[in-house]
Computed example of a mutant assay.
Amino acid sequence: MFATTFSRQIAAIACTVVMSATCLMGALAPAHVATSTPPVAAIEAPTA
């Protein structure tokens, strides 16, 4: 698929960058999720 050593190196670097960014975003994105709506309280029904 890749004819030269240079193209193999470029492909390896590109794959490393993409995988590193994917892993980093997968680890950090859940920690930075912010909601703009306040939590809704549970509805209490009258008991008989």
Rank of each mutant, 00 (worst) to 15 (best):
I10Y: 02
T4R: 06
A27L: 14
S20G: 04
A31Q: 10
M25Y: 14
T37C: 03
Q9L: 15
T35S: 12
T47Q: 13
T35D: 06
A45W: 11
A45M: 13
A14I: 13
P46W: 07
P46T: 03
S36H: 09
A11Q: 04
A31G: 01
S7H: 07
V40E: 10
T37Y: 06
V33R: 05
T4H: 04
P38W: 02
C15S: 12
S7P: 00
I13S: 04
A48D: 05
A42C: 06
A11I: 01
S7G: 02
A21I: 05
T16H: 00
M1K: 10
T4Q: 02
A3C: 13
T35Q: 12
S7D: 14
R8G: 01
A34F: 11
M25A: 13
T4L: 03
E44P: 00
P39F: 01
M1N: 14
A34H: 07
V18I: 15
A12F: 07
A3W: 13
T35E: 07
T37I: 04
A27P: 00
E44F: 09
L24N: 01
C23Y: 06
A31I: 08
S36L: 15
R8P: 00
C15M: 08
G26T: 00
A45I: 12
A45N: 09
F2E: 06
A29D: 09
I13R: 03
H32V: 14
I13Y: 03
M19Q: 05
A14N: 14
P38K: 05
T5D: 05
A42Y: 10
A14T: 14
V33E: 04
A31D: 09
A41Q: 07
Q9E: 03
A27G: 08
A34N: 12
A11W: 03
T22P: 02
A11N: 09
S36A: 13
T37P: 00
I43P: 00
C23K: 04
H32Q: 08
A21V: 09
V18E: 03
S20T: 13
E44W: 01
V40H: 09
A14K: 08
M19L: 15
